[in-house]
Amino acid sequence: MTGTPLLKCAGVSKRFGGIRALDGVDLEVGEGEIIGLVGPNGSGKTTLLSCIAGSHSVSSGTIELAGHDIARSAPHRRAHAGIARTFQVPRPLGSFTVVENVAMSMMFGRDRVARTAALDRADLVLERVGLDAHRDRAVGVLTLHERKFLEIARALALDPRLILLDEVLGGLNPAEAAEGMSLIASLRDSGVAVVYIEHNVRAVASLADRMYVLDRGRNLAHGSPEAVLADPSVVAAYLGGEVDA
């Protein structure tokens, strides 16, 4: 990566009482780049995403978006600056329909679109993720696959520069996961940068331009997917000797 990174995390630490969830983590993301973020359970992946999105404040360290320090910014300011995220367990707004969930991101996002226009533009996003047939349904009746894609649609509706995807393929069957991977790949084509957490390391490696590995809240390795998967420390310390397919 050359030039100023779109996102730069330097020495990010996060403590919850006596527990150090992140300990001096570094991460850089270039424009339109897909970054895979992997690590065992409890390694701090989701905590790092929450720190970038502003759901958690950092205990120390800096987070810069296009050269601007956002480490102390409120979550809504980061959304307006172009950061969108999905949640590991989908969190749709239950009293809104599918299209209203997506339109909400547009109404309060970077462009602050009026309600009627937002509903119209939300249709385009729903079409992109294949949920247009579910436009007026209550979110409570959606399947897990549809809820995960609704998370992506809601993030896309913010017109983001950076999307943080937290296990959007988790729990999906192979056909649904393939559909999801194709969708994530299309984000790169549209110039959006992605930080992508997934347990399936092969899936991440097949999409990512670069990968970061976290272990117990610290950087363990980073580099090209091939280099990371071949890194003995990753294989030994994180994957227990063998990379799962």
């Binding site: 759901s55 809504h76 969108a84 995220r85 809104f96 909400m104 809601r154 913010l158």
Partner: peptide, 23 residues
């Protein structure tokens, strides 16, 4: 109204609402 939708989003899940730009 947009404001009203923001209020409803805040009631249902303040964390999600704020993440998607609601002040």
């Amino acid at each position: 109204t947009r404001w009203g939708r923001g209020v409803q989003a805040m009631r249902q899940d303040p964390g999600v609402a704020e993440t998607f730009g609601v002040r």
